[in-house]
Design a protein around this nucleic acid. Structure first.
Length: 349
DNA sequence: AAGACGTGGAA
DNA sequence: TTTCCAAGTCT
């Protein structure tokens, strides 16, 4: 049952008042009705996709220091961008962000589209990010429906289906709440409410500005809504990683394939990731010695066990990757899996 | 249109 | 240890 206009207006007002008092201070957030730099908003939104605020804080400033403007980002090599992104995960985002900057500069003369439809055409911007950009950066009165908002709105209206089965309805219900003024603050307020009050587990209804109107709260269903979807366990995979050193002690690394896990990231050579057992497929023939123990790493859909092999050679053959000294190696950014493998190897040595 | 795609922190 | 999940997008 849709809410009446006066009720919507009251909810919106109450949330904005709550936001003024309790909204979080975040590095990428501008308070007081100023328009933030759209590029800053984009960088933060891309980083925040499926990633916690605490984690993003460690990368956001560093990234902007390295690429201060959208033109600087567009000029940069994608490899440099991936380096700066290393450790943050979901590396496709870095490539998409880079492609977005290039598209904006080359096809839009560095002028931002300000509508959701225009923004959605840019690489990396889906329904959520386009809405967030339109509302936060351009003050368009549109909704930005992320996981927080799905949860808050599902509870407010007492929707018992899993949000993903209901996404159009949730989007419409959210849009109905968006004020003509302060749409950017409203979008961020709704997400803050979800992140700090209307949390997935044990929501703090006592502190919620919407508790009086919340159907889930009235029915005592706040812990049951939104409905949970069973998740599959990650399957296990096994692979070997190869630490190859030349006569100077330099280590051989290469780029991962451009698709799949850790795509385009620098990495040690690895054999295929198999579901039963470790295949021995070294980059070259040599006296390979197994390093004791193993490394385990969990991706979203994969649990990977890695055996580390090492060898020294005196005359390096022609290979496609790079040979790096230990200091140079440490200066590069690495995916966490590679950090673990290096650490394991150094400890055993 | 399910599944791929990283990582870290909390319970 | 395991499970959940955090400002999603792309294919």
């Amino acid at each position: 049952m849709p809410l009446s206009k006066p009720k919507i207006s009251a909810l919106t007002t109450r949330l904005l008042i709550w936001y003024d008092q309790h909204g979080r201070d975040l590095p990428w957030r501008i308070k007081g009705g100023q328009k933030p730099d759209p590029y800053h908003v984009l960088v933060s939104e891309m980083m925040l996709q499926q990633t916690t605020v605490a984690t993003v804080k460690n990368y956001y400033s560093k990234f902007l220091q390295q690429f201060p403007t959208v033109r600087a980002l567009a000029r940069a090599e994608v490899e440099t961008v991936l380096q700066t992104w290393a450790g943050l995960g979901y590396y496709r985002r870095a490539k998409l962000l880079h492609a977005c900057a290039q598209t904006l500069v080359t096809e839009h003369a560095a002028l931002w589209p300000q509508t959701v439809e225009g923004l959605k055409k840019l690489p990396g911007l889906g329904a959520y990010t386009a809405g967030a950009m339109a509302a936060i950066a351009f003050h368009q009165p549109v909704a930005a429906v992320d996981g927080n908002v799905e949860r808050v709105i599902s509870r407010l209206h007492g929707l018992t289906q899993p949000p993903k089965d209901n996404i159009k309805k949730i989007a419409a219900l959210t849009q109905a709440l968006v004020p003509q003024k302060r749409a950017g603050d409203f979008a961020q307020a709704l997400m803050d409410l979800g992140a700090t009050v209307c949390t997935p587990r044990h929501p703090a209804c006592g502190r919620c500005p919407w508790a009086a109107a919340c159907v889930a709260h009235q029915k005592g269903l706040q812990e049951k809504i939104p409905a949970k979807v069973a998740k599959k366990k990650p399957r296990s995979c096994y692979a070997r990683a190869y630490v190859l050193r030349d006569q100077h002690g330099k280590i051989y690394i290469e780029q991962r394939p451009h698709t799949g896990l850790l795509a385009n990231m620098w990495a040690l050579p690895m054999g295929p990731w198999e579901e039963e057992g470790y295949q021995h497929t070294p980059p070259i023939k040599a006296q390979w010695r197994r390093v004791e123990g193993q490394v385990s790493h969990i991706f979203t859909h994969l649990r990977l066990y890695v055996e580390v092999m090492e060898a020294r050679i005196s005359t390096p053959p022609q290979l496609n990757g790079q040979w790096l000294s230990a200091p140079a190696l440490e200066k590069l950014g690495w995916p966490k899996l590679m950090q673990k493998i290096f650490h394991h190897w150094r400890q055993a040595a």
